[in-house]
Amino acid sequence: MRPIIGITSYVLPASWGVWTDLPTALVPHDYTEAVRLAGGRAVVLPPDDLDADVLDRIDGLLLAGGADLHPSLYGQEPGPYTVAQPDRDAGELTLLRGALDRDLPILGVCRGMQLLTVVAGGTLHQHLPDTLGHEKHRPGPGVYGSQQVLLDPESRIAALMGDDLTINCFHHQGVADPGSLTVTGRATDGLPEVVEDPERRFVLGVQWHPEVSRDRRLFGALVAAASKELTQACADR
């Protein structure tokens, strides 16, 4: 049995075929493919904030990208460029806190990294062009900013990435204060691109989009950590 990786999802009015603007639970196909190619079994978790019990049935959590977090989560008012989806925030926070309680392996992508940060007591920059004075992290609609990431050589991410340090960014918010997490990678402008929690088995957040290239270095590491979870769970039963 493959480890099951739960992927958090969006709810958007989507159109396809004969259907127009139908509220739909979805996640870009890149995420489910990246998990599949790395040897995991993806299931998509529609938003639900009643409880996090679903985590008792999965082996790893993947926090997918998406809209901005509501700034009230880190004690700020929304800025002029912040577009939040508060209904998604509640369900994902419930899942993330439950996963941390269970020490489940967690990979956060883009918004997912920002969620890890906020739950760790950190804060975000609400609009990077205002902070950094450039748009290299989101060059334009549908265009990923290609950058080189600088990694702490002692970190988990450095061991995973190896020699190819090219990353593809698409975000206008970023980590200001990582809270209790450790920043283990930065862009050349100094912006945090990777956060980790070295105290836990596998908690990793990246600001870029490894799912687009189905990057087996990162998804493989999540699946490997989740396999250990699965083996342990079977031994406990």
Binding site: S15, A25, H29
Partner: peptide
């Protein structure tokens, strides 16, 4: 669920998706 080419606003993407009314 299934993989479907969907439109959301001006975005066009291949998504793993299902209408929320089932959920």
């Amino acid at each position: 669920a299934y993989a479907e080419q969907i439109h959301h606003g001006r975005n066009d993407l291949m998504a793993a998706m299902l209408p929320m009314n089932y959920v």
